[in-house]
Amino acid sequence: MADRPVAPVPTAPAGLSRRAQWFIETAGIRVRRHDLRLHHDAWIEHGVPAAEIERATAFQDRWGGLALPPSAFYEGGPRILDADCPEETPGGGWSFPAGDCRASMAYSFEIGPDGAFGINAHRWTPLHASADGWVESLALAAHARRLAATVTRVTREDVDTLDLRAFDPVPEVEGATDSWWRGKDSLIAVYRGEAVGLDAPQCLEAHIYEGLGEWSPHGG
C-alpha cells in the first residue's frame, strides 16, 4: 500500500460552518497524506494503544494533507495538517502531532488526550476544543480581514482591559485558551496560548475587527 493520493482541491469535511467549508474549498490545497494504517503493527509493538492509533488515524482521514493559509498568530500555525505516532504525555494520556511548524519554534502543534488542538511548550496548552475549532478560527480570521473597515492590534496587559460584556462568544471556534467574540458589527480574537504555554505574558494579543456589517453566524 502507498500513501493515499487525494484531489488537490479539497472537499470540506462534514459538520463545519458554511464559512469554514468555503474557506477550505477556495483557499486550501490537499497534498499527498501519509496512511497511518501502514504503521499500525509497528506502533502496537512499541506500546502505543490501539485506541490512540485509531484516534490519530481518524484525524488523518479527516484533516491529513490539508494545507491552509497561515493563521494571524502562532507563526502561521501548522504548515500542513498531518498526524504522526501518538506519544504518552507526562500528565497522563496520549497526544499526537497535528502538523509541522512553518518555522523553527519553541513549541509544537498537537492533538491532546481529550481531542483538543493546542501547543506543547513548557506545558500542554489547548487552544481550541478540536481541530475543527482551529480551522473554524482560521476561516473566521480570513472572513474578518476581508470585510473589516479597521483592524486594531492590542497587546500585553491591555488585552485584559478589553470590555467584552457587550460581546458573545463565537461557539463554532470551540475556544479554550484562545477565543473569538462577536458584537453588532465587530469581532475580537483573543490569543492567550503563547502567554500561557510559554509563561510569557508579553505574548498576550488580541485583534479587533470593526465595520464588518451585519453579523452572519454561519458566514460565507
Rank of each mutant, 00 (worst) to 15 (best):
V154R: 10
G118A: 09
D158N: 12
A121W: 08
E172W: 08
R145T: 12
G183V: 00
T125C: 12
I119G: 02
R146W: 15
V173G: 03
G115A: 08
D132C: 01
T152P: 12
R182Y: 14
A141M: 03
T152D: 14
D168Y: 05
W134I: 02
R165D: 08
S137W: 02
L164K: 10
E172G: 04
T155K: 12
L147P: 01
A144T: 00
R145W: 15
A121R: 13
R145K: 08
D158F: 11
R153V: 06
T125G: 03
V173W: 14
R153I: 05
V159P: 06
I111A: 08
F117R: 06
V159N: 10
D114E: 05
E136P: 06
A129H: 10
G112S: 04
D178G: 08
R182K: 15
D178V: 00
T125R: 06
R146Y: 15
G115D: 13
P169T: 10
H122Q: 15
V135G: 06
D163L: 14
S137A: 11
G183E: 01
S130R: 07
A148T: 03
D158Y: 11
V159W: 02
V154K: 07
W134T: 01
F167Y: 12
I119V: 13
H122W: 03
S137R: 04
L127Q: 14
R145A: 11
G175K: 01
F109Y: 12
W134L: 13
L127D: 10
R153F: 11
W124K: 02
P171K: 11
R153M: 13
L162R: 06
R182S: 12
E172Q: 14
T125D: 00
D178C: 03
P113Q: 09
L140P: 02
S108L: 12
P113N: 05
E172K: 04
G175R: 07
T125L: 04
